[in-house]
């Protein structure tokens, strides 16, 4: 069975290391915060100037002066701090943020990512995505393997305007976990019940497959 969005988030949550600073993008990445394993200590960074982001506020306790990068009302946890946008991107560009998790429309086998613009459609802008992908030491992409028409979004070469080049390290989709190596995508895990053949036919890029490919452990 292909995974749902919550399960993709659960699988990615297992990648988060103890005592790390993490930036979560909008969409599936935001869900990752709900599944951080017990005993793993993280501080979430929001690029509009918050470190130590907590859950949404209780009803009636929303503060217009306290939002995340998705403009949602949030809370802060003990040890949190606020800072300006230049400092925030100093944290990102200076590689003080350990892990960036973001969504994508396309990823290519050399680690290029496209996630901000579809020619001919309304362009909303890249926000902080270009700064994040250009600088983060570790980038994990959460995305759907195929689009609604069944076409692969895991490509030899991206077709959409790029957000960054050679930056993605790992991709988690509804079908598989892929690592970006110097030789291309390596298939490291498959979704429970999904065959290697199914993943191969759903992927435009070549896949490096070594021996048996284990199933993802979700829970």
């Amino acid at each position: 069975m292909a995974l749902g969005k919550e399960e993709i988030a659960k699988r990615i949550a297992k990648e988060v290391k103890n005592n790390s600073y993490v930036n979560l993008g909008i969409g599936i990445p935001t869900l990752v915060a709900n599944y951080i394993p017990k005993g793993i200590n993280v501080e979430f960074q929001s690029e509009n100037g918050v470190l130590g982001m907590g859950p949404f506020p209780f009803e009636g306790e929303e503060d217009a002066d306290l939002i995340n990068a998705g403009k949602q009302t949030i809370t802060t946890l003990a040890g949190a701090s606020f800072f300006d946008s230049a400092t925030s991107f100093g944290m990102i560009r200076g590689q003080h943020v350990d892990l960036t998790i973001l969504g994508a429309m396309e990823v290519s086998e050399n680690g290029d990512i496209a996630n901000w613009k579809i020619p001919g459609k309304m362009v909303k802008g890249m926000g902080g995505a270009m700064d994040l992908v250009a600088s983060a030491e570790n980038i994990i992409v959460a995305m759907m393997h195929v689009n609604k028409a069944g076409e692969s979004k895991i490509l030899k070469k991206c077709t959409l305007p790029l957000t960054g080049v050679g930056c993605v390290k790992k991709v988690v989709t509804e079908l598989a976990v892929l690592e970006v190596t110097s030789k291309g995508f390596k298939l490291v895990e498959r979704a429970p019940g999904v065959s290697v053949e199914h993943i191969i036919t759903s992927t435009e890029a070549e896949l490096i497959i070594e021996g048996d490919v284990p199933e993802m452990v979700i829970d």
């Binding site: 859950p55 949404f56 949030i74």
Partner: peptide, 8 residues
């Protein structure tokens, strides 16, 4: 507030 998000 653009996106009023809360928890129960």
């Amino acid at each position: 507030i653009e996106q009023r998000t809360t928890r129960k």
